[in-house]
Simulated scan of single mutants.
Amino acid sequence: MEEKAALRRTVHEYIKQMSDRPHLDRLIHKRLFDTDLWKESQIIAVTSSLPLEIDTSPIIHEAFLEGKTICVPKVKGQGLTFHIIHSVEDLETSVMNILEPTTPPMNEPIDLCLVPGRVFDRAGYRIGWGGGYYDRFLETFSGTTIALAYNTQLVSHVPTEPHDLPVQWIVTEKEMIQCSPYSL
Rank of each mutant, 00 (worst) to 15 (best):
M1E: 01
M1W: 02
E2G: 15
E2S: 11
E2N: 15
E3H: 13
K4W: 04
K4G: 04
A5D: 12
L7I: 01
V11K: 02
V11D: 05
V11Y: 00
H12F: 05
H12A: 00
E13D: 10
Y14V: 01
Y14C: 07
Y14L: 09
I15D: 08
K16R: 11
Q17I: 00
I28T: 10
H29S: 01
R31K: 14
R31A: 00
R31Q: 08
R31H: 11
L32G: 15
L32V: 09
F33L: 11
D34I: 01
D34F: 04
D34K: 08
T35D: 12
D36R: 01
L37V: 13
W38G: 10
S41D: 05
I43K: 09
I44L: 10
A45C: 09
V46Q: 07
T47K: 03
S49I: 02
L52T: 02
I54R: 05
D55P: 00
D55A: 14
I59G: 02
A63W: 00
G67S: 04
K68I: 03
T69W: 09
C71V: 13
C71N: 03
V72A: 10
P73S: 00
V75S: 13
G77N: 14
G77P: 00
Q78M: 15
L80E: 04
T81K: 03
T81F: 06
T81W: 08
F82S: 12
H86I: 02
S87C: 13
V88N: 11
V88I: 12
E89H: 07
D90V: 13
D90F: 10
S94I: 05
V95G: 00
M96A: 12
M96K: 13
L99G: 06
L99I: 03
E100I: 04
E100G: 07
T102H: 06
T102W: 01
P105Y: 02
M106G: 15
E108S: 06
E108G: 06
D111Y: 14
L112I: 13
C113A: 14
L114W: 10
V115Q: 08
G117T: 01
G117R: 01
G117N: 06
R118E: 11
R118Q: 05
F120K: 11
D121E: 10
A123D: 15
G124A: 08
Y125F: 15
R126C: 08
I127Q: 11
I127V: 05
G128R: 05
G130N: 03
G130P: 03
G131P: 02
G132V: 11
Y133W: 08
D135Q: 11
D135C: 06
D135T: 04
L138T: 12
L138C: 04
L138E: 01
L138M: 12
E139K: 14
E139C: 05
T140P: 01
F141W: 02
F141R: 03
S142D: 13
S142C: 10
S142Q: 15
A147M: 00
Y150A: 00
N151Q: 06
T152L: 02
T152I: 02
Q153I: 00
Q153Y: 00
P159E: 07
T160D: 00
T160C: 01
T160K: 08
P162C: 09
D164M: 04
D164F: 03
L165Q: 05
P166C: 11
Q168C: 06
Q168H: 08
W169L: 09
T172P: 04
K174M: 10
I177R: 01
I177E: 07
Q178S: 11
Q178I: 09
Y182C: 14
Y182H: 10
